[in-house]
Write a protein that binds this DNA or RNA. Structure first.
Length: 826
RNA sequence: GCCGAAGUGGCGGAAUUGGCAGACGCACACGACUCAAAAUCGUGCGCCCUCCGGGCAUGUGGGUUCAACUCCCACCUUCGGCACCA
């Protein structure tokens, strides 16, 4: 006889069966509603950690649940396989990155399968496979053709440890996102994607993403950083053909400008001081500032230093001469790299002016106050009336912003302008293990894109592994040598590879069309499957991957390749997994691996615990004893199935349907309702599981409180069967095993999700709480259809209550049907 | 500084629409079974008191309401993001 719950045995058995039956393959079916469930694909580092287990568990519950609900579910998995760790491993182990990656994928895939996750492996993608990166390159060319990929000389982020440049999004507080080294600045010619062209849409379409967490949207909102203002041209007094353009959000303060400060990188700086006595001082200062890392330059305690250039600009609104300085706090990458200083109305300008003894002039007066430029101790940034502003005097400053800009526009000296904090996406990487940028340089024809028919531009296969790093592509002569596609003359290949975030910006499209040989993906496929209905992943990608993927999707939309304007309809940002209040890490010695858990308790226990311990979006504290509890529950379920099966076989029992049966039935239907709602509407798997636990407890209670020969076996069986169905998404192996044990041949995962019957939820009597002045003073059981008046009367008649209100004046009685009665007395 | 999220027993968490605070689970205690242990089952379990019964409790202080974890105001703390952004 089958007895104990043996996860090792049943999990392997059913995993094999599912694989043999190809159970989770999905095909286009226009008669069914599709549902795209996607977890962020992993970097194949070699082993799964608890964060992976969590994200896959969440995704798998949804996928399995939605299949049972009748959706045509697509649930794919793949590998974000390019990236630096493969190169480091290559050197450490003297093994080709491709082979290392391949081995890791193989291993991790086994681990995923051991978790029982229901993936359609026929759609698996590997971004490092030529068959995939060919299309990453194709998409680069698409960007190039659409004017969205370009090369420029720029001052860029450089990580010395990774020996490559980084995009702005990949620098966190001045440190490299991957290795936390200090990021330096270098001047290099690099490839960029014009994401700023999409800034406005990336920002406004956030509003369409109703089912995204607010915090992620806020982060993107801040990152894009839109501000409205004016761009204003100031002529250089000493060199009339030159002008300084400045961006300001406060054109209403233009009459208060007393300095013009340029970024050290500003192209005009050199010209302004060239051949003057100040040239050396200024250029030394510029050189010194530019050597500083972003950390040093933006540190809180970094003093604001400015150096006079000896030159002046002319304020276009009143012809005043204003000194031009170079300042270490002005950033070339924002606005125009030049700031007009209005000390009276900008705190930073105020401090700067105090330090450099620049004049302060008040041009906005707050209502009912009289600010004095000699006595103010801080800038006034609020609203007010314009003063000292010529013909604009007396205007409200908000009005003034518009009026001043309009005036300048008429004169051709300025215009309205919107500026973004977001900068173009630097995608060149000076590394081997990435998709080569498909560009050829020809002496005659210049920069030439590789024709689509010549793709992929393959990575050199025989990697040089003798040194202390994998050499970049420039090292491989055979790779560099090329023929110009235009003129046929010898040419050189671009030797940088693309940022791996390019590869992960479109993989969800490829899943829909994984084997296409004619395009990155085919329209029929993506028109059916896209967008992703539910995306699940870590919050750390709030501005990186999630912003890039949105950008790519919009470009693909504009190119007519998809109808999806946004890639991910719903986003679930899952919390992190902690243990003992700290992130799991080797150094803290608090790591628990999915392997250990599967080994010890089985995958079902691990999945159940991870979903039960906290709602998915919250951080989760791993608790070994909690895992025991989940395991105990599954054993309890298994034992129940085994015992009931034996009981059913005896043929004993009867068909009575008394109070206890009605109660069991009611609990069953209430549970179906709750579990369905919790998964579908709230993503609260923890409460769904607790409801199933209560149902199991109710079955045990029924069996305990009714003699075996008197138990209603048909009801018991129905309840048990439905319990197994409810549990199937959470503990798929146990459910399949139990289902089989109960005599069913077809997979539990092919069954329909149970429906609840509202009729079965109806009760005859309910317990009503009776409060006096808001405090619970008694309870009474009344017929369920008692209305407010009946309730009030019943409460008054209640023995205990009537004693308590005896001799007191009843001011008011509030009765809520089915819930409570509150008697207000004096 | 700005923006966002959150604060509930010893612990993880629940309370879905303003209506019994603490579901479910963990830990703990006691009991049953056992020679014993494990497993399993049962009972109890916010804090306090004079323990029939009552008082106090959802970060703090106010407010609205018959009724507040839930709504409003102010504040405190924690976490996350952005930050010399002109």
């Amino acid at each position: 006889m089958v007895t104990n719950y043996n996860p090792a045995e049943i999990e392997e058995k059913w995993q094999q069966k599912w694989a043999e039956d190809d159970s989770f393959r999905s095909e286009i079916d226009h008669d069914k509603t599709k549902y795209y469930v996607l977890e962020m694909f992993p970097y194949p580092s070699g082993k799964l950690h608890m964060g992976h287990m969590r994200v896959y568990s969440i995704g798998d519950v949804l996928a399995r649940f939605l299949r049972m609900r009748g959706f045509n579910v697509i649930h794919p998995m793949g590998w974000d396989a390019f990236g630096l760790p493969a190169e480091n491993a290559a050197i450490d182990h003297r093994v080709n990155p491709a082979i290392w990656t391949e081995q890791n994928i193989e291993h991790m895939k086994k681990q995923q399968n051991r978790l029982g996750v229901s993936y359609d492996w026929s759609r698996e993608v590997n971004t490092s496979a030529p068959d995939y990166y060919r299309w990453s390159q194709w998409l680069f060319l698409l960007m190039y053709k659409r004017g969205l990929a370009y090369k420029k000389q720029a001052s860029v982020n450089w990580c010395e440890t990774c020996e490559t440049v980084l995009a702005n999004e990949q620098v966190e507080k001045g440190l490299c996102w991957r290795c936390s080294s200090v990021v330096e600045t270098r001047d290099l010619e690099q490839w960029f994607l014009r994401i700023t062209e999409y800034a406005e849409r990336l920002l406004y379409d956030l509003d369409k993403l109703e089912d995204w967490p607010e915090r992620v949207k806020t982060m993107q909102h801040n990152w894009i950083g839109r501000s409205e203002g004016a761009e204003i041209a100031f002529k250089v007094k000493e060199i009339p053909e030159e002008e300084v353009r400045t961006f300001t959000t406060r054109p209403d303060t233009l009459f208060g400008v007393t300095s013009m400060v340029l970024a050290p990188e500003h192209p005009l700086v050199k010209k302004l001081v060239e051949g003057t006595e100040r040239e050396k001082d200024v250029m030394d200062f510029v050189a010194r500032v530019r050597k500083e890392s972003e950390i040093e330059r933006t540190a809180d305690e970094a003093p604001k230093i400015g150096l006079f250039t000896g030159r002046h600009v002319v304020n276009p609104i009143n012809g005043e001469e204003i000194p031009v300085l170079v300042g270490n706090y002005v950033l070339m990458g924002y606005g125009t790299g030049a700031v007009m200083g209005v000390p009276a109305h900008d705190q930073r300008d105020f401090e700067f002016a105090k330090k450099h003894k620049l004049p302060i002039r008040i041009v906005i007066q707050p209502e009912g106050e009289e600010l004095d430029e000699h006595t103010i101790t801080e800038a006034y940034t609020g609203e007010g009336v314009m003063v000292n502003s010529g013909s604009f005097n007396g205007l409200n400053n908000t009005e003034g912003m518009k009026k001043v800009t309009e005036y300048l526009k008429e004169k051709g000296l300025g215009d309205f302008r919107v500026t973004f904090r977001l900068r173009d996406w630097l995608i060149s990487r000076q590394r081997y293990w990435g998709a080569p940028i498909p560009i050829v340089y020809c002496d005659k024809c210049g920069t030439v894109p590789v024709p689509e028919t010549d793709l992929p531009v393959k990575l050199p296969h025989d990697v040089e592994l003798s040194g202390n790093r994998v050499p970049g592509l420039a090292h491989y002569e055979e790779f560099v040598k090329a023929t110009c596609p235009v003129c046929g003359e010898p040419a050189r290949r671009e030797t940088d590879t693309m940022d791996t975030f390019i590869c992960s910006s479109w993989y969800f499209f490829r899943y829909a069309s994984p084997h296409s040989q004619i395009a990155p993906f085919e329209k029929d496929d993506v028109d059916y499957w896209m967008p992703v209905d539910q995306y699940i992943g870590g919050i750390e990608h709030a501005v990186l991957h999630l912003l890039y993927a949105r950008f790519f999707t919009k470009v693909l939309f504009d190119a007519g390749m998809t109808r999806a304007e946004e890639p991910f309809s719903r986003l679930l940002a899952q919390g992190m997994v902690y243990k003992d209040g700290a992130k799991m890490s080797k150094s803290k010695g608090n790591v628990v691996t999915p392997d250990e858990i599967v080994e010890r308790y089985g995958a079902d226990t691990g999945r159940l615990f991870i979903l039960f311990a906290a709602p998915p979006e919250k951080d989760l504290d791993w608790n070994d004893q909690g895992v025991e509890g989940s395991h105990r529950f599954l054993r309890r379920v298994w034992r129940l199935v085994v015992e009931c099966r034996e009981q059913f076989a005896t043929g004993k029992g009867n068909a009575d349907h008394g109070e206890k049966e009605a109660e069991l039935e009611r609990v069953l239907h209430a549970t179906i309702r709750k579990v369905t709602h919790d998964i579908e509407k709230r993503f609260n798997f923890n409460t769904a599981i607790s409801a199933i636990m209560e149902l199991v407890n109710a079955i045990y209670n029924y069996r305990l409180s009714v003699e075996e020969v008197k138990q209603n076996n048909s009801l018991l069986k129905e309840t048990l069967v439905k319990t197994i169905l409810l549990l199937a998404p959470f503990a798929p192996h146990l459910a399949e095993g139990a289902w089989n044990l109960l005599g069913y041949k077809e997979s539990v995962h092919k069954q329909s999700w149970p429906e609840f019957d509202t009729v079965k939820l109806v009760v005859d009597e309910v317990e009503i709480v009776v409060q006096i002045n808001g405090k619970v003073r008694g309870r009474m059981v009344v017929p369920v259809d008692f209305n407010e008046d009946d309730l009030a009367e019943a409460a008054r008649e209640n023995e205990r209550i009537s004693e308590l209100i005896e001799g007191r004046e009843v001011v008011k009685i509030i009765a809520v049907k089915g819930r409570l009665v509150n008697i207000v007395v004096r």
